[in-house]
Design a protein around this nucleic acid. Structure first.
Lengths: 170, 170
DNA sequence: TATTGTTATACTCTATAACTATA
DNA sequence: TATAGTTATAGAGTATAACAATA
């Protein structure tokens, strides 16, 4: 449990977070303008498109939305907009299955090219093919690692840690 | 302007965004619990700590907050909490200088070790030293690239693009 | 008892536009 | 005219807790 702050790690971390923050902001604007959806909504739709079949609410949420209620809220919006449908799952009646509609798939297809363009312009432009491959390799490993991490996203923690929490600023 | 979707780029991009999303969420929780601040607030304080001197509001915001009002809001909270002070700048009286207080510096110092720990556990654990160095190199280039990008963050765009915008989901 | 999902509610945060003041 | 910052306000999004229903 070394506390020493490796400056190389710190630099890497801050560059990563700032870059992704700016990228995400630009991507949000593109999605909002061309598709009328937020980035979270895009992630949910894209995940369904990728799955090529229905997902349960929990599967859908994992790594995207971090509270059950937030997920229900987003699913409600997407359903109201006709982009997904929700239906019961006979084999486990607690579960809700989420299916991408044709309209939803169409929206993903319509929005993706511009999305890619923004990503190219901001993220890939200054990188070589080798950089991209290496970055993909690294981040795939990180993603698998964080996915394997104990605290499941949609399952809220119960415990309130022994040392208490600091007084909030807001 | 190629629209073709290079699958390698897409994989890289999605892995990057999901990883950082999860990392940011964990970091938010750590900051909230140990320091009572949000990630945006941490970024602002850390930027001031790094600058080792006052910054203007605009310099402070760049790449962190994307609207002037959002910045004023956050600065208001931080000032109320005694973590920063705002003062006029004699050489340009439109400008507000933001200074980190001792309490603010103390908070950054107090929160940083746990912050690093979370980052290590989620981001750096599955990476080799060489990966980290390469990732740092890549993301530093990307950060410099996005910083150089035309649309300055705190300066809102005026134009409303010719093709109009899509109907919002919400 | 644990898990899946929904609802109600309170709160945080962001963005838009209108405004002030200085360059 | 353009830039720096503030204010008011409205809207989106998130989290907590209480709830119902199934495993």
């Amino acid at each position: 449990m070394t506390d020493a702050l490796d400056p190389r790690e710190l630099t890497t971390y801050f560059a990563l977070m700032e870059s992704v923050g700016v990228l995400e902001h630009h991507v949000e604007q593109q999605l909002r303008a061309e598709g009328g959806i937020s980035y979270v909504q895009f992630q949910l739709l894209a995940r369904l498109a990728d799955a090529a079949g229905p997902l349960t609410m929990t599967q859908l949420a994992d790594g995207v939305v971090y509270s059950r209620s937030g997920l229900t809220y987003q699913a409600g919006l997407l359903e109201k907009a006709g982009l997904i449908t929700r239906s019961p799952f006979a084999e486990d009646e607690r579960t809700t299955l989420v299916t991408l509609t044709g309209k939803g798939a169409e929206l993903v297809g319509r929005v993706l090219p511009g999305h890619i363009q923004v990503t190219r312009r901001l993220l890939f432009d200054p990188l070589s093919d080798d950089d991209i491959e290496r970055l993909g390799d690294i981040m795939t490993r990180v993603r698998d690692h964080v996915r394997a991490q104990p605290p499941r996203s949609a399952a809220p923690r119960k415990r309130r840690g022994g040392s208490g929490s600091a007084a909030p600023v807001g």
